[in-house]
Design a protein around this nucleic acid. Structure first.
Lengths: 147, 147
DNA sequence: TACAAAGTATATAGATTTAGTAGACTTTTA
DNA sequence: TAAAAGTCTACTAAATCTATATACTTTGTA
């Protein structure tokens, strides 16, 4: 399961993606629109800023905005920045690798092999899906709902 | 990430799968072979037994064994029995569904749509892979390692 | 029939992680 | 110069996970 942190981060980036090119958006606006605790969101946005995804502007009229086009930010990046490994086992994680302490031989572990396949499938989707894609899908879903 | 409980459960089923058709196997044997804390494993095997996957025999010469052929036990079942949802978001989980409390409209949520795709990909693999497959893969990996 | 082997059942402790809150500080604009 | 808005660090409360403890029941066999 994704952590709330990761979920909030994705949601915030989607909102900011829709706002791309406009004036920066305030934390409180994002927080209330998306029902995210404001103080928690502050920390998350700060992390995303420190990672270079967002710019920020202090003072009256300040706020946050995307540094890059939403089409160039991929969901997998957000997972990784907010600490969520993509893999279901530490021993198949690219960015959060850890040896399974109960496993005697990683190279011949059938369980690992299965979850390697799962990781690859997940990774493919999440590294091909950008924030812009998420926004686009939302549009398609709304169309389908209206019909 | 899968919990240790889930990982231990899969490992134990693989061991019992290799032993299928033979005399029941003792908890302590499985625990020491697979480096799993014995007392913890006891609880896990009990759960799997209560779920109908394992039979048990008390007393001297007792132990645990698979009720069904390892080809008929699928990895996804183990995840679910040991409390690990397959989905990365509660709102796309089939067996552990929960509404995302921050989400205003599930039907048109783009984030949900992406993670629905991820869940489907994961589910496909895990529901097509049996304990027998895990054992088979292990064999293939060993061959490749030896060459 | 008594004893040892082995599983059953429930409770609880300890550690870790997650989620959220608090508060004091800095920068910017009007 | 006051209000708006982000920055930074620390802390706490709750949940979950991992593991251990203890007492009990069943079964085989000497």
């Amino acid at each position: 399961m994704l952590s709330k942190k990761t979920r909030y981060a994705i949601k915030a980036l989607v909102v900011l993606g829709k706002n791309f090119g406009e004036a920066p958006m305030q934390i409180s606006k994002i927080a209330s629109d998306e029902h995210i605790p404001k103080k928690f969101l502050e920390q998350i946005l700060l992390d995303l800023r420190n990672a270079g995804l967002l710019y920020s502007k202090k003072g009256a009229g300040g706020g946050y905005g995307l540094v890059k086009d939403p089409a160039e930010i991929f969901v997998v990046q957000v997972l990784r920045l907010t600490g969520g490994p993509v893999a279901l086992l530490p021993c198949v994680s690219l960015n959060f690798y850890q040896k399974c302490d109960e496993c005697s031989n990683e190279a011949t572990c059938g369980v690992r092999d299965v979850f390697l396949e799962v990781r690859n499938a997940t990774l493919k989707i999440l590294s091909e899906t950008s924030i812009a894609d998420v926004i686009r899908r939302e549009g398609l879903l709304i169309e389908n709902t209206e019909v």
